[in-house]
C-alpha cells in the first residue's frame, strides 16, 4: 500500500516536472498548426471562388479542365498530395524548390493544403451560387442593375447564408487535417507530442502528451463551432 502511494507520488512528481517542458513544446507545435490553418483558409477561400467560376464557365475547355482538376484533387488523398508536392521537385527535377528545413516543409504543406481545400470550397461555392433562383438575377436585370451590382448587392449575401453550414464543416475538418502535414515532418502539434514518445528533452515513452494534443484540437474546434454558429445566427434575419 505504501509502495503504491510512493509510486503514485513519484509519478505525479515526474508529471509536474515534465509538464512545463511538454506544454511549451506543444504550444510551439500548436502555433505551427494554427499557422497552417490560417494560411490555408486565407489562400483557399479566394482560390476556391476562382475555381468555382471556372467550373461554372460557359467556355467548355475551361469548364472541363477545371472539373477534371477538382476531381483529381478531391478524389485522391491529401496525404498523397502532400508527399508528391513536397518530394517531387527535389527527386524528379533535382531542384528542391521548397527550400530546406521547417520553412520549406511549411511552404510545401501550405501549397498542398490551399490547392486541396480550394477544390472542396469551390464545389461548395458552386452549389451556393447555383442554388440562387434565376429570378433574383432577373429582378436585378429588370431594375437596371449591372451584373456586378446584382452579384454583390443581391446574390452574394444569399450565397454566404447558404454556404455557412457546409463551410463550417470543412473548416472544422481543416483544423484536424492539418495533422496530415506530419507526414512530411512538419513540426505541428502531433509531431510535437509524438516526439515525447520517441524521446525528446530527456523524456521518452510518454503517451500522455498525445492525449494532451487532443485538448488543443477540441479547444480550437470548439471555438470555431461557437464562432461559426454565431455567424449562422446573424444571418438568420432573412430566409432564402
Amino acid at each position: 500500500m505504501q509502495d503504491f502511494f510512493q509510486n503514485l507520488s513519484q509519478q505525479f512528481e515526474t508529471f509536474f516536472t515534465q509538464f512545463p517542458v511538454v506544454f511549451q513544446s506543444l504550444n510551439v507545435g500548436f502555433l505551427q498548426t494554427l499557422k497552417l490553418f490560417c494560411t490555408t483558409l486565407l489562400g483557399a477561400l479566394p482560390l476556391g471562388l476562382v475555381i468555382s467560376f471556372g467550373s461554372m464557365s460557359k467556355m467548355k475547355v475551361v469548364n472541363k479542365i477545371t472539373r477534371l482538376f477538382v476531381w483529381i484533387v478531391r478524389g485522391s488523398p491529401l496525404m498523397l498530395q502532400l508527399l508528391i508536392i513536397y518530394y517531387f521537385p527535389g527527386l524528379v527535377w533535382h531542384k528542391p524548390i521548397w527550400g530546406g528545413g521547417e520553412d520549406g516543409r511549411f511552404l510545401a504543406a501550405t501549397v498542398s493544403f490551399i490547392i486541396n481545400y480550394a477544390c472542396y470550397f469551390s464545389e461548395i461555392f458552386r452549389g451556393g451560387i447555383q442554388s440562387i433562383p434565376i429570378g433574383q438575377y432577373e429582378a436585378g436585370q429588370v431594375l437596371g442593375l449591372t451584373k456586378t451590382q446584382t452579384f454583390f448587392r443581391v446574390v452574394l449575401l444569399q450565397v454566404i447564408k447558404r454556404i455557412v453550414p457546409p463551410m463550417s464543416n470543412e473548416i472544422i475538418t481543416l483544423v484536424k487535417d492539418t495533422s496530415l502535414a506530419r507526414i512530411i515532418a512538419l513540426q505541428e502539434i502531433i509531431w510535437a507530442g509524438q516526439a515525447f514518445m520517441k524521446g525528446s528533452h530527456g523524456i521518452s515513452g510518454a503517451i500522455w502528451p498525445m492525449f494532451f494534443t487532443m485538448v488543443y484540437y477540441l479547444f480550437a474546434s470548439g471555438i470555431l463551432t461557437v464562432l461559426l454558429g454565431r455567424l449562422e445566427k446573424k444571418l438568420d434575419f432573412f430566409k432564402v
Partner: peptide, 20 residues
C-alpha cells in the same frame, strides 16, 4: 441595354423580392 430596360418595369409571378 440597361438604359433601354429602364423603359419598363416588370412585376414577376414569383415576386422575386430581395430577401436580405
Amino acid at each position: 441595354r440597361r438604359e433601354k430596360q429602364l423603359n419598363f418595369g416588370l412585376v414577376f409571378q414569383q415576386f422575386n423580392l430581395f430577401p436580405q
